[in-house]
Design a binder for these strands. Structure first.
Lengths: 615, 615
DNA sequence: CTGTTGGCATTCCGCCGACAA
DNA sequence: TTGTCGGCGGAATGCCAACAG
């Protein structure tokens, strides 16, 4: 081959040259992975807690069927038939039920590794999950913290390839904005201005392009080297290419395919039955033994995420009062990899699969969309995917907006703030006694156990006395303990284990099953929710059993959380990153909202905590 | 695209043209499929009984790891790492045991469909299996009949592509013999002689080639159209191409890839844990409910077949006395898609996986090979894969060898033969009373039930009297019923169902578990086996528990089966095919060996029944 | 501002016999 | 008998500006 150092040509044989380090595991660049995955994908952080939905996981392998059915309208028909046949079989219910597998599993996410298919560059993530029986406030906090700190959003551009871009006749026409934002500046004294661009893909293969600014009118073009890339990646018109510039000012490039080819899947190896059974059986086995298991998440193949950060799930369950007819917004990805919110209305609340997954929260909301783009958007979503339109909190601008100058490093903030106050403000129902002096020593408490105690106070005798004291102080008297168990359809609650369960993964298998009742139990709390929507009109919430609980509200003065828009948050993060990191530890604090509440922001929708560093 | 009618270029978009019939399911040409699968692959026929080994099925997905590890020596290293990592995990035993899943399942094979991956042309078969509790003699017969009638072995040639064949510089050099055998004859009055060849691939895509006979010295070449095929199929030097001529004198062509690329698998969708669990759980679920399930068999990816025709398994278990140090032959595929036998010695008999699959017959023989080609051949095989060298029967040439002329159609053979005698001769222990007058009305009998009765004769009272009569006649008195149950490690045998179980798939789930004991029970029979090796030296057969039983022999005069070599069988089939099919039904008969036993054939190794049509 | 097209140089594809092996 | 090579003609690739939307 006479081609220059542009590694990784069309054939697989040439790709070894650039994988110079041999058998060493190449770590995928996370920013590039994120860019390829799309703006809506937000992986949970390793070490945090998540809620895993086997139903959604199982759907992921189904989605290939959906994709092929979509392809039916476009292209090959053989594959469609093949997958359609396998779908029909599944309807015949060859897949056994796993009665011991709850519809959701609380898990500790041990590990997340990013991957990309060596042939197709398809991005996917491997997650090692371990079912746990409970979580504590620290887990919730860390999940929430990771939820927001995960958005550097590097500079990038994404262009859908045109016929001209992919034809052998010419090169790639670079949008002017994109070239100026991402590419190194050209030396315009040259005639014509040109340079050599070097970019690496997900596999660290190097691609070189000639970047030239020419033509009448002038435009940015990639010429030499471009066709090798197109043929090497087997790109066609409609596929997208994206360039990003990482923090070391190096160019990275990735691709996103438009034509959802079914990736030939494992159809020659595994029946779709076995595939679904495998997913469910692996989860059931892990749930029964509290043993770790592995999950692959393919962001562009899955219709929805099925491993939800605990905090995201938690907030959705507690904050959003779901009702029929409720208006909401939801993010969608646009062309060119942007995001856009669409408005919709909840038209129904029902199980997606009433037989197999009864009372699951997985996509249990039927929705209609304001802009009817002919069923383009999904008509079933999960609660954590939507943002209620009715602003839940009093919205106050963050302190940054009060003074334009960045905060001085090392200067303590005048707002009183520490972890204790955070807990008190985010979970005011916990009461003052339940403060956190030492996060490491904080005894964890299973919410399951806790709720069980509320339903059966006699069990509390087995608890350590200080627990009961703190709990009884604020919680028990604030909650209607009377007929909770009847409302929630609970049978005799099991005896909780009274000892510390913080991050203790070795639990009794039976407790894993209790977790299925966790969301139902939690939904009975609704302290934050009742605040957010005091005048909640009563929708007909089927199988939610919250009606009676809604009447109860906590005083508005207890509202402490602030609301930031995502843009604002991005600025916040920028500011934070500009601060010299001379702090010894990262501390989380909650700005009290009572200080500087100026005006309500109508656009705000999501319920976010504000996080800052403080030395 | 300006390319001629040669359909299916490199891009997926052009392939629609040749799939003219749209969504109709294209049925794969069985001969072409067989040629691509290789000469050793022999799929069981639909409607027959098979023995399914979940362990082997599970290994199939592992084999991709093996393939990548082989690639390690050749090519990319990233994939190796990925799969090596996933293997290690499996060693950590995240996969649950399925205590209710026996190591082998007797199944009725409902359906077999042939497939080929639309992208890679990889051939695979989809089989629908249904666990059954028992089989009868008719099932065994039909399995045996299908075993041998399945080898038309059409004319074909297979060539491994050279660098010149695959380079863009030239065309394809056709071996002289191959061209003369397969291609239509050239008109040598032309100068140069040339013609247009039209061949169809597995997907019925049409490829046209210019076939020319030119050069100095003269040779057969494929020129125009060849490079499109090479690039379209993404062939490289080392891959193989094969041409076959079907019965309608049409050319078909297929490919076989040499570089075992890991087919990127489903790694982006499914963890290997889930994959293995899925296979096992699907089988376990099917076994528990006697419900059908689907299995994919990839002949070129699997190290061994894991769906074994009942007759093949049966004969191997009954005919071959396996012992340490035993000599055997085994078929292997050569380059150019031929077959060759290698000699080997049994060096050990032990479970491949003593933990998960105890007492499984799946590759429980450790073997060494005479020609040590450095571990090229597997060191573990299953009993049905080998052919004992010590000729088990008296070998007699079939009647065809007595007279060279083919048998006259419609002329009844002078040998007395019918289904009754077949049964008597293949299963002499059944006794004369157990004859078959009407195959349809023949009551089925589970071997499990039968063996249970032998161990616990009191149960026989529940059986219909004529059964017991026939059984007691020859069998019961020939078997050492004394401490069988202790030897075989059987606990209290369950009550067998006394009614007819012929092809009755709806059985009690518990009976499926009994099947696991079937081979162990069967191995205690050894009536044929004791004949074949009367002077069997006693090897240390671990966990086989046959030692005491071996001493017992049946009279040699009862040996009735004939032995044909595969080549002989092919000739037989040819002859049979030449016979006009004016017969109303196919009947199976067994040539008695006592008539014309001339000389022993030393090369004969396999134990085959002779099958003929008789009007 | 950018997608497509015609014009054109250059490269590469692909058919041929000449050599060996 | 068949794998590779130098040779050559022709087809394609790929760079350019000219349009047009």
């Amino acid at each position: 081959m006479k081609s220059p150092e542009t590694g990784a040509g069309g054939t697989a044989a040439t790709s070894t040259a650039t994988n110079g380090e041999g058998a060493e595991k190449k770590s995928i660049n996370p920013e590039l992975w994120q860019a390829c995955a799309g703006p809506l994908v937000n992986l949970p952080a390793a070490g945090t807690h998540v809620v895993y939905f086997p139903q959604g996981h199982s759907e992921q392998s189904f989605s290939f069927s959906f994709r092929s059915q979509f392809m039916f309208l476009l292209e090959s028909k053989i594959t469609v038939f093949r997958f359609a046949a396998s779908m029909k079989k599944d309807v015949d219910a060859q897949i056994p039920n796993y009665p011991n597998l709850p519809s959701k599993l609380l898990c500790l996410l041990h590990n997340v590794t990013l991957h990309a298919d060596p042939e197709t560059d398809e991005v996917y993530a491997q997650m090692t999950l371990q079912p746990v029986s409970s979580f504590d406030k620290d887990a919730l906090l860390r999940s929430d913290l990771a939820l927001k700190s995960n958005k550097p959003q590097t500079e990038f551009f994404c262009k859908t390839l045109t016929a001209s871009d992919t034809s052998t006749h010419g090169g790639f026409s670079v949008p002017r904005r994109a070239a100026e934002k991402i590419f190194p500046p050209l030396n315009f004294s040259m005639q014509p201005p040109a340079q050599e661009l070097v970019a690496r893909d997900l596999h660290d293969n190097v691609w070189t392009f000639r970047h030239i600014y020419r033509g009448q009118p002038k435009r940015h073009l990639l010429t030499t080297g471009w066709s090798l890339f197109v043929s090497g990646k087997r790109l066609f018109a409609g596929d997208s290419v994206l360039f990003i510039r990482d923090e070391k000012q190096q160019l990275l490039l990735g691709i996103r395919r438009a034509n959802r080819q079914p990736t030939n899947l494992s159809s020659s190896v595994l029946s779709s039955d076995s595939m679904h059974i495998g997913i469910l059986a692996a989860a059931a086995h892990a749930a029964a033994n509290n043993s770790p298991f592995t999950v692959f998440y393919n962001p562009r193949a899955s219709p929805s995420e099925f491993v939800i950060p605990l905090a995201k799930y938690y907030k959705a369950v507690y904050s959003n009062q779901i009702s029929l007819g409720m208006r909401f917004r939801m993010m969608f990805e646009t062309e060119e990899s942007g995001t856009r919110r669409y408005m919709g209305t909840i038209t129904g609340i029902s199980d997606l699969d009433p037989v197999r997954w009864k009372n699951s929260q997985w996509r249990n909301l039927q929705v209609g969309w304001d802009e009817s783009t002919a069923g383009e958007r999904r008509n079933r979503v999960s609660i954590w995917e939507i943002e209620p339109v009715t602003a839940p909190f009093f919205i106050c601008p963050p302190p940054f907006f009060r003074s334009k100058r960045p905060r001085q490093p090392g200067m303590p903030d005048d707002d009183s703030s520490d972890l204790d106050s955070l807990f008190k403000r985010t979970m005011p129902w916990l009461g003052d006694e339940f403060c956190m002096k030492d996060p490491q020593a904080l005894p964890g408490l299973s919410l399951v156990q806790w709720m069980n105690m509320q339903q059966n106070p006699s069990l509390a005798n087995s608890m350590q006395p200080n627990y009961m004291q703190s709990l009884s102080g604020s919680v028990l008297q604030n909650l209607p303990g009377a007929d909770l168990s009847r409302q929630l359809g609970l049978s005799s609650p099991q005896m909780p284990q009274p000892n510390n369960v913080q991050f203790n993964a070795q639990r009794l298998p039976q407790q894993a099953q209790q977790l299925d009742q966790l969301p139902k139990l939690q939904s009975s709390l609704i302290p934050l929710g009742s605040i957010m929507q005091p005048q909640q009109q009563m929708g007909d919430i089927t199988q939610q059993s919250r009606q009676n609980l809604m009447a109860q509200t906590l005083p508005t003065s207890q509202v402490q959380a602030q609301l930031l828009q995502p843009q604002t948050l991005a600025q916040t993060n920028n500011i934070l990153q500009q601060q010299p990191s001379n702090t010894k530890s990262i501390r989380v604090l909650l700005k009290p909202s009572s200080n500087s509440c100026k005006h309500q922001q109508q656009e705000s929708t999501s319920n976010l905590l504000w996080i800052d560093r403080n030395r």
